[in-house]
Design a protein around this nucleic acid. Structure first.
Lengths: 211, 211, 211, 211
DNA sequence: CATGAATGAGATTTCATTCAT
DNA sequence: AATGAATGAAATCTCATTCAT
C-alpha cells in the first residue's frame, strides 16, 4: 500500500547492519573484478566472498554494472582526494606535477585491483571511461593553463599535454606497478620525472633546442 | 602409433577456396571484436558476417580466443612493417621518432578496429598483451641505446623512456583517433612531438634547465 | 582468503522444496538414462520430465556424469541393503547364496532402469564400474572364505568364484529380467541355483566326479 | 544415366586399391571404437588414423553404425571359427567345453578391442547385441542337448546353462583379460573350469549332493 | 533484511554427413 | 577413388536476474 515501487535497490541503507552488508559487497566486488575482470566475474562469486546469499546482491544494487560503476566513481573520488592532499599548497607547477605523480603511483599501488577496474571500464561502460579521462583532463587543463601564463611551464595545448602526462602515468603504472606487484621504484620515478620536466620546462629565450 | 590429437583446425588451407573462407572469417572477426569487444562478440555474429555456417568457424580456428590472438599478432607484424618502412634510412633518432609516431597514428587510424582489439588483449589474454608491449619496448631500447651513446638524445634508462613514449602514443591515439573517428590532427601531432622532443633532446652542457 | 571454488552445486539442499526438486531430477534421470542410455540422454529431456527449467539441473549437479555416478552409487547401496536384509541370519553359505540371488533378481526387476545404468557405467565412467564390481567381489570373498574353511563349500580361489557367480547373475538377469520385462521365472531360478550349488558344493571324500 | 542410385557405399570394392582403403578404415575403426567407445569415437579420428580424407569414409560405409555392425559381425564369425577349430573332433562335452573356453579366452585376449566393441553393442545397436548372444545360445543348446541325452552332462534347461556359461566367460574375461591387459592366467582357468565341470557333471545315481 | 530456489536466454562447441571437384 | 570444405542441428553449460518466503 506504500507509494514506493517494488524493489528499488537501497543506495544508502538506513540500518547499520545494511551499511555493513553493502560495504562487504563492494569490497568483494573490488576483489573479484580486479582478479577476474568484469565479464568473468560472477555475482555468485561476489556474494560468496561477501558471505551473503545471492539474492542479497540485488537488495543493494540494481545490476552487475552498477557496482562496477560505483567502484570506478569511488576510485576517481579518492584518487583525486589523495592527489589534492599531496599537492596542497604547492605553487610551482613542476613541483606540483612531481608530487601529483608520486601520489598517483602510491595510490594505484595500494589499490591495484581498483586500478585494474578503471582500465576495464573502456570495454564495460565506455561513457564512464570517457568521463573518467575527460574530467581528469579538465582538471589538468585548469591547472596547466595558469602555469603556462605564469611562464612556469612551456606554453602548448594544455589538453595535449594532459593526455601526454596521463599516458605516461598509465603506462609506467601498468609496467611497474601492475606487472611487478611492487610499487614504482624510486629510480624509475626519477627517470620519468626528468623526462617529464624536460618536456614541460619552458624553453628559455636564448636556448636553442638543438643545433 | 601416436595417441593422435583429435581434430586440429586448418592453419593454412590447401585449396584456394579454403584460403578465402579463412580470410573472410578473420575479417569478420576483426569487425565484430572491434565493435562489440571480445566478451560480447559471438561466434554466431562472426560467421553470419562472414556469410558461412557456424560450424565453419571451427574448421579454421579451435576457439574464439584463437582468432583474437591471430588478429593481435597480425596487427603487431603489420604495424612493425609500416613503421619500419616509414623510418627506413633515418639516422637521427629524433627524426626517426617523428616518422615513427606519424606512421603509428596513420596505421591505427586505418585499422581502428584492430587497435581496439589490442587494447582488449589485457583482459582477454594477458600473456599476449605483455608480449606485445615487452617486444615493442625491446625494439625501442635497441634503437634508443645507440642514439644515447651517440649523444643524439638525452641519456636515461631507455626502458623507462620506451614506456613513456608508448604511453603518449597510446593515449593520444585513444583520445584523437579512437574517440573522434578522425585521424590525429596535424596540430596535435606537432604539439605532442614538441613535447617529446624537448623531453628527449640532450641537455646541452651549459644550458641550465631552469633558473 | 581462499581462492574459492567457483559455484558448487547443492548436495544437500537446506529447504524442503530444494530436496524435492533434487529428487525429481534424480528420478527423471534414472528413467531417461535407463531408456536412452547415457550418451543419448539429454539434460533437456531430464529437466522436462522433472518439470523444471534446464538451468535448475545445474543447481544440483555439476554435470551429466555427476547424476549418473550418484545413481550408480545409490543402486549399489540399496542393492546391498536388500541383499543384507534377505540373507540376515543365514549361516549356511549355500542357503545364503540362494537367498542372495533371489534378492538380487527381485531387486533388479524392480529397478530395471537403474540396473541398465550400472551396465553402461563401463563406457561412461570406467573407474566407477571397476569400483562397483571390485567391491562386490570383496564382499563375496569375505563371505566365501570362511565358508570354505568350514567346509560348507568347495575350496577354490574365492575371487574366481565371485566373478563366476556375478557373471551368472548378470547374464541371467540380462536374458530374463531385462530382455523379457518380467521377473526371473521360478523355473529358471531353480535351474540356475542347481547349477550353482553343484559347482559350489564340496566334493565329498569318496565321491568320484565321473567314471 | 546409369540406373544405380547415387552414393551407394561400396561393400566389396572392385579394385585392389579400394580393398586396401576399406580395410584400413576397418582397422582404424576397431582401434578407435575400442579405445574411445562408439559415442566418443569420431569419424574424423578414424579417417585420420586410416590416413585418408574424411569424405573417403562414406565411400565405403553408409554411416558410423555400419562399421560398428560390421566389426561385431566379423568378431562373431572369427570367434566361432576359432572355437570350431579348437574343438574339432572332441566328442566328450566336458572336454569340448574346456577347449572352447580356452579358445575363447585366447581369442579375446588377442582381440581385446574387438571384444570391447561387442560389449558396447548393448548400447549402440541392441538388436545386434541380442542377435549376438541369442545365436551363441542357440549353438550352445545345439551342442548341450545331445550331451545331456548321452548323459555326458547333467540334464537341465540347456538355455539356462548356456547363459550361465556365457556369463562366466564374460566376467572372467572382463576381470582378467580386459582389466589386466594380460591373458587369463592358467591358474584362474583351472579354477573356473573346475567350477564349471562340477556344475555340469552329471549327478551319478547314488551320489547324494550333501548330507 | 536476507535467503536460496528457480529461471531461461544465449553462448560455445561437436560432429556425422553431404557435396563439388 | 579420393578429397576436404562446408553444413547445421543439437547438446552442454553459464549466469544475471526474479521471486516467494
Amino acid at each position: 500500500m506504500s507509494t514506493s515501487e517494488r524493489k528499488q535497490p537501497v543506495l544508502d541503507p538506513p540500518t547499520e547492519r545494511g551499511q555493513r552488508t553493502r560495504q562487504k559487497l563492494l569490497d568483494a566486488a573490488e576483489a573479484v573484478f580486479g582478479e577476474r575482470f568484469f565479464e568473468n566475474a560472477s555475482i555468485t562469486e561476489i556474494t560468496q566472498r561477501a558471505g551473503v546469499a545471492q539474492g542479497t546482491f540485488y537488495v543493494y544494487f540494481p545490476d552487475k554494472k552498477a557496482v562496477f560503476v560505483e567502484l570506478v566513481r569511488d576510485l576517481s573520488r579518492n584518487l583525486r582526494r589523495s592527489i589534492a592532499l599531496a599537492t596542497a599548497g604547492i605553487a610551482d607547477r613542476l613541483e606540483y606535477e612531481r608530487a601529483g605523480f608520486r601520489a598517483f603511483f602510491d595510490y594505484i599501488y595500494r589499490h591495484r585491483n581498483l586500478y585494474r577496474i578503471v582500465r576495464q571500464a573502456e570495454f564495460v561502460e565506455n561513457e564512464l571511461y570517457h568521463w573518467y579521462y575527460r574530467s581528469w583532463a579538465e582538471s589538468y587543463v585548469a591547472g596547466l593553463q595558469p602555469a603556462m601564463e605564469a611562464n612556469q611551464i612551456q606554453r602548448m595545448d594544455p589538453e595535449v599535454l594532459a593526455y601526454c602526462l596521463m599516458g605516461i602515468g598509465d603506462f609506467l603504472g601498468m609496467r611497474w606497478v601492475l606487472w611487478n606487484e611492487e610499487g614504482l621504484p624510486d629510480r624509475v620515478f626519477e627517470e620519468l620525472m626528468a623526462f617529464v620536466e624536460r618536456g614541460m620546462a619552458p624553453v628559455t629565450a636564448g636556448a636553442a633546442r638543438r643545433q
